[in-house]
Design a protein around this nucleic acid. Structure first.
Length: 495
RNA sequence: GGUCACGUGGCCGAGUGGCUAGGCAGAGGUCUGCAAAACCUCGUACAGCGGUUCGAAUCCGCUCGUGACCUCCA
């Protein structure tokens, strides 16, 4: 069942053979969103990437426990205000209303992108006790200190004692001294590199919990350490997130886990890369940004039309998760056509008459090699663009069989069976694509209507009444229905 | 300013010391009443300048450009 799989481990900065802690099982933790406003398109790419990783492990036969958290407290803005509290203030809602509202929105978008729900989706505010316990453990190990009701992680001491600070990010503590931003209560820290694991709540701060150090709230990095430990154990297989989280978030998470448990949290760290828009980073202030909704509806000056969620997902598959991906209208258009070509080939495959080849032909070998290759590509650090390319190699064979360029006796029945099985698995189970039905909701009525119309047109064609036949086709085209004349009659699709 | 990535044909995007990525667009052809689709054929690209090597887009150096991070953005 389980095949050899290599993953690029950010910790080692190289591809490594994946060896699970427990054979056949994978524990994976991925940093989820901070739910204080609408989900960013970049988040979507990140979660789609890890969705494919999740699906690949499952496809390979692993039993996966996938934990992806919701951060609903502790994540502060530059000015020190809690992101959730700020959202609540701006929208005049309870903090938990903000959390619920944007959690719902996040789930909606994930569903639209056909991202599988994780096995466990814990929230930071539901794990305050675990976080307080972790702070206590770190204090007990002498790697944190209390100051005026806040608790700070002692980074220099941790670095000195374990030598592990900077393992992931390559950060050197002395370089961090350059920081000049004026942050909240910066002066309380013994060292600028120290970070809060528990913060005292100001009187006006709404989100607060009692603790041994007074009323306060947990630091941003702590919830991931506490929840990954709770659900996956002190050490687990994979920790993922966007590359922008490497430092400080993931580096500090590692420090906290070491500080509390004396061991590293994850064996493999996987980081997804950023999304660009027209070659530039997405930036609200520069107007270079687009939301998932705008992408779907086309309601943006940056794109010429709307693109369906599956087209966007397909577009994401065309790049490796560790590469930046540039969104342009032209690239989306290309992805849309590619997606359609692939999906058309898939439905053609289902309707193909049976083949009669008795010995393995060159075409048989070619198809088998492409399928084997696609699986190998997936097992090579989840290389979806390569796997997709292999699938595209098979498309002309399917269409050729349909169009008569390839004869049925040139392919063995077993090859077609394997093709149906593997192509379906890859497209739907691993890549997580869905067929976006052409006919839409009103299919039955329109279907019988179209049967009638095409029947009338067929009569006209039989009589060589081309003006009538063309008039019907052009009229349907104007109504958004494309008619294609094939060898066995005409077919139609909504454009 | 510091640390780290990346820069591939018209566009997106794999690959990474010698061997075809793939998609889209474009050119020619086959098929078709025409069209669309499909099928076949076609691109010697790898930021610039040096260096290492029998051989570099792939390794090294410099320059330019883009991006990430540098206390809380996936």
């Amino acid at each position: 069942m389980t095949k050899d799989l290599t993953v690029y481990n950010s910790l080692a900065r190289e591809k490594q053979l994946f060896k699970p802690l427990h054979p056949g099982y994978v524990g994976m933790y991925v940093c989820g969103p901070t739910v204080y406003n609408d989900v960013h398109l970049g988040n979507c790419r990140s979660f789609v990437s890890f969705d494919i990783i999740f699906r690949t492990f499952k496809y390979l036969g692993y039993k996966v426990r996938y934990v992806r958290n919701i951060t609903d407290v502790g994540h502060l803005l530059d000015d020190g205000e809690d992101r959730i509290a700020k959202g609540a203030r701006l929208e005049q809602l309870e903090p938990m209303e903000i959390v619920q509202k944007y959690t719902n929105g996040f789930h909606d978008i994930m569903r639209v992108f056909n991202v599988l729900p994780p096995s466990i989706e814990p929230r930071a505010t539901q794990h305050i006790i675990e976080q307080i316990e972790m702070v206590k453990a770190i204090l007990a190990n002498g790697l944190a200190y209390e100051k005026n009701g806040s608790v700070y992680f002692d980074v220099p001491r941790f670095a000195k004692e374990t030598g592990h600070y900077g393992d992931l990010s390559g950060r050197v503590i002395d370089d961090l001294l350059q920081e000049t931003r004026d942050l909240k209560r910066q002066d309380e820290k013994n060292h600028p590199a120290d970070f809060a694991i528990w913060m005292k709540a100001d009187p006006e701060h709404i989100m607060r919990w009692p603790s041994p150090w007074g009323e306060g709230f947990p630091g941003w990095h702590l919830e991931c350490s506490a929840m990954s430990t709770k659900y996956l154990g002190k050490t687990f297989d994979i920790h993922g997130g966007g590359s922008d989280l490497k430092f400080p978030h993931h580096e500090n998470e590692i420090a906290q886990n070491f500080g509390a448990c004396g061991c590293a949290p994850a064996n493999y760290w996987l980081h997804g890369n950023m999304l660009l828009l027209n070659g530039r980073k997405m930036s609200k202030s520069e107007g270079n940004t687009i939301s998932p909704e705008q992408l779907f509806t086309g309601d943006s000056s940056l794109i010429s039309k709307g693109y369906s969620p599956m087209v966007v997902r397909f577009f994401m598959l065309m790049a490796h998760y560790r590469s930046t991906l540039d969104i342009t209208d032209e690239a989306l258009l290309a992805a849309e056509k590619g997606y359609k070509r692939m999906m058309d080939a898939w439905s053609t495959l289902a309707s193909l008459p049976s083949t009669t080849g008795s010995t393995a032909s060159e075409i048989d070998n070619e198809i088998i090699q492409a399928l084997d290759g696609a699986l190998a590509d997936l097992c090579d650090d989840f290389n979806t663009p390569m796997a997709l390319a292999k699938l595209f190699e098979v498309v002309p064979r399917i269409n050729g069989l349909k169009g008569g360029q390839i004869k049925p006796d040139q392919i063995q029945p077993a090859t077609i069976e394997r093709l149906k099985q593997d192509m379906g698995d890859l497209l739907f189970s691993v890549f997580g694509l869905k067929e976006e039905s052409d006919a839409g909701g009103a299919s039955e009525t329109i279907g019988s209507l179209m049967d009638l119309i095409l029947d009338l047109r067929q009569s006209a064609r039989a009589n060589k009444d081309w003006p009538t036949a063309d008039k019907i086709r052009d009229g349907l085209q104007a109504a958004g229905i494309v008619v294609k004349d094939g060898a066995e009659g005409s077919s139609w699709t909504l454009s």
